[in-house]
Protein backbone atom coordinates (compact mmCIF):
# COMPACT_ATOMS: atom_id res chain seq x y z
CA UNK A 1 0.00 0.00 0.00
CA UNK A 2 1.45 3.39 -0.91
CA UNK A 3 0.60 4.87 2.47
CA UNK A 4 4.01 5.36 4.09
CA UNK A 5 4.47 2.89 6.94
CA UNK A 6 7.85 4.41 7.77
CA UNK A 7 6.53 7.92 8.12
CA UNK A 8 3.45 6.73 10.00
CA UNK A 9 5.86 5.21 12.54
CA UNK A 10 7.70 8.54 12.77
CA UNK A 11 4.41 10.31 13.53
CA UNK A 12 3.39 7.68 16.08
CA UNK A 13 6.75 7.85 17.83
CA UNK A 14 6.46 11.64 18.00
CA UNK A 15 2.98 11.37 19.54
CA UNK A 16 4.34 9.01 22.18
CA UNK A 17 7.29 11.31 22.85
CA UNK A 18 4.77 14.09 23.53
CA UNK A 19 3.13 11.95 26.21
CA UNK A 20 -0.08 11.28 24.25
CA UNK A 21 -1.99 8.53 26.07
CA UNK A 22 -5.38 8.77 24.39
CA UNK A 23 -5.92 8.90 20.64
CA UNK A 24 -9.37 9.46 19.14
CA UNK A 25 -9.56 8.55 15.51
CA UNK A 26 -11.87 8.01 12.60
CA UNK A 27 -9.90 5.81 10.21
CA UNK A 28 -9.23 6.80 6.63
CA UNK A 29 -6.77 5.52 4.03
CA UNK A 30 -3.81 7.72 4.95
CA UNK A 31 -4.23 6.88 8.64
CA UNK A 32 -4.38 3.07 8.47
CA UNK A 33 -0.87 2.46 9.78
CA UNK A 34 -1.28 5.00 12.57
CA UNK A 35 -4.49 3.29 13.70
CA UNK A 36 -2.77 -0.12 13.61
CA UNK A 37 0.14 1.19 15.68
CA UNK A 38 -2.27 2.53 18.29
CA UNK A 39 -4.24 -0.74 18.31
CA UNK A 40 -1.07 -2.71 19.00
CA UNK A 41 0.17 -0.37 21.74
CA UNK A 42 -1.04 -1.46 25.20
CA UNK A 43 -0.12 1.97 26.61
CA UNK A 44 -2.45 3.82 24.23
CA UNK A 45 -6.16 4.36 24.82
CA UNK A 46 -7.52 4.22 21.28
CA UNK A 47 -11.05 5.51 20.77
CA UNK A 48 -12.52 4.70 17.37
CA UNK A 49 -15.19 7.28 16.66
CA UNK A 50 -18.48 7.11 14.78
CA UNK A 51 -18.09 10.78 13.82
CA UNK A 52 -15.12 13.07 14.31
CA UNK A 53 -16.89 15.67 16.47
CA UNK A 54 -17.16 13.10 19.26
CA UNK A 55 -13.39 13.26 19.48
CA UNK A 56 -13.53 16.94 20.46
CA UNK A 57 -15.64 15.99 23.47
CA UNK A 58 -13.48 13.00 24.34
CA UNK A 59 -10.29 15.07 24.20
CA UNK A 60 -11.94 17.75 26.35
CA UNK A 61 -12.84 15.14 28.95
CA UNK A 62 -9.36 13.64 28.85
CA UNK A 63 -7.75 17.06 29.28
CA UNK A 64 -9.93 17.97 32.25
CA UNK A 65 -8.98 14.60 33.77
CA UNK A 66 -5.27 15.24 33.19
CA UNK A 67 -4.60 12.90 30.26
CA UNK A 68 -2.83 14.12 27.13
CA UNK A 69 -4.71 13.28 23.96
CA UNK A 70 -4.87 13.91 20.23
CA UNK A 71 -7.60 13.74 17.61
CA UNK A 72 -6.64 12.06 14.35
CA UNK A 73 -8.91 12.56 11.33
CA UNK A 74 -9.26 13.51 7.70
CA UNK A 75 -9.78 17.15 6.74
CA UNK A 76 -13.42 16.36 5.96
CA UNK A 77 -13.71 15.25 9.58
CA UNK A 78 -12.38 18.62 10.63
CA UNK A 79 -15.13 20.23 8.56
CA UNK A 80 -17.69 17.97 10.27
CA UNK A 81 -16.40 18.95 13.74
CA UNK A 82 -16.54 22.72 13.55
CA UNK A 83 -19.29 23.37 16.09
CA UNK A 84 -17.58 21.15 18.64
CA UNK A 85 -14.28 22.91 18.05
CA UNK A 86 -15.86 26.36 18.41
CA UNK A 87 -18.45 25.72 21.13
CA UNK A 88 -16.41 23.34 23.26
CA UNK A 89 -12.68 23.48 22.56
CA UNK A 90 -12.49 27.22 21.95
CA UNK A 91 -15.25 28.37 24.30
CA UNK A 92 -14.01 26.21 27.18
CA UNK A 93 -10.29 26.75 26.51
CA UNK A 94 -9.32 23.16 25.72
CA UNK A 95 -5.82 22.52 24.25
CA UNK A 96 -7.13 20.29 21.47
CA UNK A 97 -4.31 18.76 19.42
CA UNK A 98 -5.58 17.80 15.96
CA UNK A 99 -3.69 15.78 13.35
CA UNK A 100 -5.51 16.19 10.08
CA UNK A 101 -4.77 14.31 6.88
CA UNK A 102 -4.83 16.96 4.18
CA UNK A 103 -6.57 15.25 1.31
CA UNK A 104 -7.36 17.07 -1.89
CA UNK A 105 -4.10 18.96 -2.36
CA UNK A 106 -1.65 18.89 -5.26
CA UNK A 107 -1.34 15.34 -6.57
CA UNK A 108 -4.83 14.31 -5.45
CA UNK A 109 -6.36 11.80 -7.83
CA UNK A 110 -9.78 11.39 -6.23
CA UNK A 111 -12.23 14.04 -7.45
CA UNK A 112 -14.35 13.79 -4.28
CA UNK A 113 -11.45 14.96 -2.10
CA UNK A 114 -10.78 18.15 -3.99
CA UNK A 115 -13.41 20.52 -2.57
CA UNK A 116 -12.43 19.79 1.02
CA UNK A 117 -8.77 20.09 0.15
CA UNK A 118 -9.35 23.54 -1.26
CA UNK A 119 -11.08 24.97 1.82
CA UNK A 120 -9.23 23.31 4.70
CA UNK A 121 -6.61 25.99 5.32
CA UNK A 122 -9.15 28.80 4.80
CA UNK A 123 -11.42 27.22 7.41
CA UNK A 124 -8.55 26.92 9.89
CA UNK A 125 -7.72 30.58 9.25
CA UNK A 126 -11.35 31.61 9.72
CA UNK A 127 -11.44 29.71 13.01
CA UNK A 128 -8.13 31.38 14.03
CA UNK A 129 -6.63 27.96 14.68
CA UNK A 130 -2.84 27.96 14.41
CA UNK A 131 -1.58 25.20 12.11
CA UNK A 132 1.53 23.96 10.34
CA UNK A 133 1.98 21.47 7.54
CA UNK A 134 4.00 18.28 7.92
CA UNK A 135 5.59 17.48 4.58
CA UNK A 136 8.82 15.66 5.50
CA UNK A 137 9.67 13.20 8.29
CA UNK A 138 12.24 15.59 9.72
CA UNK A 139 9.50 18.13 10.43
CA UNK A 140 7.30 15.76 12.39
CA UNK A 141 8.81 15.54 15.89
CA UNK A 142 9.78 19.21 16.34
CA UNK A 143 6.55 20.61 14.91
CA UNK A 144 4.37 18.22 16.89
CA UNK A 145 6.20 19.17 20.08
CA UNK A 146 5.83 22.87 19.28
CA UNK A 147 2.15 22.47 18.44
CA UNK A 148 1.48 20.74 21.74
CA UNK A 149 3.42 23.42 23.62
CA UNK A 150 1.35 26.18 21.99
CA UNK A 151 -1.93 24.34 22.60
CA UNK A 152 -1.14 23.89 26.29
CA UNK A 153 0.16 27.42 26.78
CA UNK A 154 -2.77 29.07 24.98
CA UNK A 155 -5.40 26.51 26.07
CA UNK A 156 -6.68 26.52 22.50
CA UNK A 157 -6.90 24.09 19.58
CA UNK A 158 -3.98 23.70 17.18
CA UNK A 159 -3.75 21.63 14.00
CA UNK A 160 -1.05 19.76 12.12
CA UNK A 161 -1.80 19.04 8.48
CA UNK A 162 -0.46 15.67 7.34
CA UNK A 163 0.43 16.30 3.70
CA UNK A 164 0.72 14.02 0.71
CA UNK A 165 4.52 14.17 0.56
CA UNK A 166 4.71 12.73 4.08
CA UNK A 167 1.86 10.22 3.98
CA UNK A 168 1.84 8.86 0.45
CA UNK A 169 4.50 7.11 -1.60
CA UNK A 170 3.64 7.99 -5.21
Amino acid sequence: MPVSATHSQVIYDALKACGIRLLSVLPETWLVHLVSLAEEDPEMLLVRLAKEEEGVGISAGAHLAGVKSALLMQNHGLLASINGIVSLAQLYRIPLLMLVSHRGGFGEEHPWQTEGGGVTEHVLDALRIPYVTLETPEQVAPRLRQAQALAEASLKPVALLLCRGLMWED
Partner: peptide, 25 residues
Protein backbone atom coordinates in the same frame (compact mmCIF):
# COMPACT_ATOMS: atom_id res chain seq x y z
CA UNK B 1 -20.33 18.96 38.64
CA UNK B 2 -19.60 20.34 35.16
CA UNK B 3 -22.26 22.08 33.08
CA UNK B 4 -21.67 21.99 29.35
CA UNK B 5 -23.31 25.12 28.03
CA UNK B 6 -23.54 25.01 24.26
CA UNK B 7 -21.60 22.23 22.44
CA UNK B 8 -24.99 20.56 22.17
CA UNK B 9 -24.72 16.79 21.99
CA UNK B 10 -21.19 16.44 23.31
CA UNK B 11 -21.88 15.81 27.02
CA UNK B 12 -21.78 12.04 26.49
CA UNK B 13 -18.47 12.33 24.60
CA UNK B 14 -16.92 14.47 27.36
CA UNK B 15 -18.14 11.92 29.89
CA UNK B 16 -16.56 9.11 27.88
CA UNK B 17 -13.23 10.95 27.76
CA UNK B 18 -13.29 11.36 31.54
CA UNK B 19 -14.46 7.80 32.22
CA UNK B 20 -11.66 6.31 30.10
CA UNK B 21 -9.06 8.63 31.60
CA UNK B 22 -10.08 8.10 35.24
CA UNK B 23 -11.52 4.57 35.53
CA UNK B 24 -11.58 4.82 39.34
CA UNK B 25 -14.09 7.69 39.23
Amino acid sequence: FFYLWHSMGLASSVGLGIALSRPEQ
